[in-house]
Amino acid sequence: ELSWTAEAEKMLGKVPFFVRKKVRKNTDNYAREIGEPVVTADVFRKAKEHLG
């Protein structure tokens, strides 16, 4: 699991709890794919757009 900024964690907190774990995993995987060592708010937004 990658490191997350406080802002990205806050955004994740707005995701319904029953899918939060999956969203975190998918976002981590997306960040790795694009070469990001940390999940930022920008990476979170891009993952959301990319993953739907």
Rank of each mutant, 00 (worst) to 15 (best):
W4R: 00
V15H: 07
G13S: 15
V38G: 03
A47H: 05
W4E: 00
T27E: 00
G35N: 08
P16W: 07
L2S: 05
N26P: 01
W4T: 00
E9S: 07
R24S: 03
H50E: 06
R24V: 03
K25P: 01
T5D: 07
E1T: 11
A41V: 11
F44K: 02
N26W: 15
E49V: 11
P16C: 08
G52H: 13
F18V: 10
E36Y: 09
A47T: 04
A41L: 09
L2P: 08
T40R: 02
V23A: 06
T27N: 02
L12I: 05
V38I: 12
I34F: 09
F18A: 14
E7S: 06
K21F: 09
F17Q: 10
E1A: 12
E49Y: 12
K48N: 15
N29G: 08
V19M: 15
I34G: 04
K46G: 07
D28E: 15
E7C: 06
A41Q: 06
F44Q: 01
G13Q: 15
M11P: 00
R32Y: 06
Y30S: 01
P16N: 06
T5I: 02
W4P: 00
T27F: 09
G35M: 06
I34N: 10
E7H: 05
M11Q: 06
E36M: 08
K22L: 14
N26F: 15
R20C: 04
M11Y: 05
H50I: 11
V39R: 01
V39T: 02
V43N: 02
A41Y: 05
K22P: 04
R20Q: 08
H50P: 04
S3V: 15
M11K: 04
K21V: 12
H50D: 06
V15S: 04
P37Q: 11
H50C: 08
T27D: 00
L51C: 12
V23Y: 07
S3N: 10
E7L: 06
F17V: 11
P37G: 09
L51T: 08
V23M: 08
D28T: 07
I34L: 11
A31S: 06
K21R: 12
A31G: 03
K10G: 09
K48P: 04
V23D: 02
V15E: 12
K25L: 14
V23G: 01
K25A: 12
F17E: 13
F18M: 09
V15P: 02
K14P: 03
F17P: 11
